[in-house]
């Protein structure tokens, strides 16, 4: 997340000896003077070059028929063959719909929850209780996906799960949640809210803490109620943060995380639970169709990137905060 562009950049006049005419001797002298700084960056830089930039070079196998013995460069070019195969395959619409369904569902339902949580929690007068709620609601974020998935499956089990005991106690028939394909997105989204709403509210708390206290002062003098304060001061104050996070969300619309979906999938819900990331994994690593899988992955990244740029420029046009 690019959070550095939020707010004002403070100019620090640190070692202001950068000359207006930068000549090469001066620059190299300066680099030499601070050579240690470059050594500090080196390990991190090498890591991203090797594990992020070199793979980007490997993306070309999406346009080739990758043959392991010939390597990335030696494999023959095939143009858009793999992309055509994907777009024409029986799975394409299904996977795309599933991915979009889950991410749009969570954007509509899950995205506002941390905002509301932060706004409400901000009004709690008792600081200890506030802290306690924060500590508790952040906690599920740190539970592993494996554990999370198994909790979901256990709780929703038709014969033994606590949720169905509750349903039975209310006099209804137990629901075999995990076996119903149409319930998968709901299970995914609501368990996601349970796990992450608290944690995601951190950013909004941060934004709330930067609101000018004078505004509250003025509000109090004008006798505005708590609800009015939230509506007219708090909410507008955190709109920039909301917009930034919304843009980032839109940029990830095709990236429904692999782990959770994969861990919750079964043969009965696969119809709605197969998303791009799980498909890439299955085709790519389980069936070893490297080129085809890379093509699917690239399609995913490109769409995400286009969406990110589009939404960002719309936000800019509307005069809202933007990523760049």
């Amino acid at each position: 997340m690019n959070v550095t562009k939020i707010g004002k950049r403070i100019k620090i006049p640190y070692k202001r000896n950068i000359p207006y005419k930068r000549n090469i001797r001066n620059i190299s002298k300066k680099i030499l003077l601070n050579y240690e700084l470059y050594l500090f960056v080196l390990p991190a830089l090498l890591t991203i070059i090797i594990f992020n930039y070199v793979p980007m070079y490997g993306i070309q196998i999406a346009f080739k028929d990758f043959i392991a013995t010939k390597g990335i460069i030696g494999s023959p070019w095939v143009g858009f063959k793999h992309f055509n195969r994907f777009f024409n395959s029986y799975y394409f619409t299904n996977i795309l719909t599933n991915t979009l369904r889950i991410s749009i569902y969570s954007m509509v339902v899950a995205f506002p929850v941390p905002i509301i949580l932060a706004l409400l929690l901000n009004e709690v007068k008792n600081q200890h209780y506030k802290k306690f709620i924060q500590t508790v609601t952040y906690a599920p974020h740190f539970i592993s996906m494996v554990v999370m998935a198994s909790m979901i499956i256990s709780f929703l089990s038709p014969s033994m799960g606590i949720v169905n005991h509750l349903i039975k106690a209310m006099g209804f028939e137990p629901i075999p949640f995990m076996e119903k394909a149409n319930l998968f997105p709901t299970i995914y989204v609501f368990s996601g809210i349970w796990q992450n709403a608290g944690w995601n509210s951190v950013m909004y708390f941060a934004a709330l803490s930067t609101i000018d206290p004078q505004l509250y002062e003025a509000g109090r003098v004008d006798g505005c109620t708590t609800v009015q304060k939230i509506w007219y001061i708090d909410l507008p104050g955190i709109i920039p943060m909301i917009v930034i996070l919304l843009i980032l969300n839109c940029g990830n619309i095709l990236s429904v995380g692999f782990e959770k979906v994969y861990l919750l999938q079964n043969n009965l819900n696969i119809e709605t639970s197969e998303v791009i990331s799980t498909y890439v994994y299955k085709v790519g690593l389980q069936k070893a169709e490297y080129s085809f899988s890379t093509a699917v992955g690239l399609f995913n990244s490109v769409v995400n990137f286009i969406l990110l740029v589009t939404v960002n420029s719309i936000a800019k046009k509307l005069g809202q905060s933007s990523l760049w």
């Binding site: 700084l37 991190a44 980007m56 890379t294 992955g297």
Partner: peptide, 27 residues
Amino acid sequence: DMIGRNFIMTLFTITMFFNGGLIPTYL
């Protein structure tokens, strides 16, 4: 005062929005 800091920062930031994907990284 680090020269080239913005360039290096850009290199890092790009990785947040674009990556090689599963298979190229695996390879």
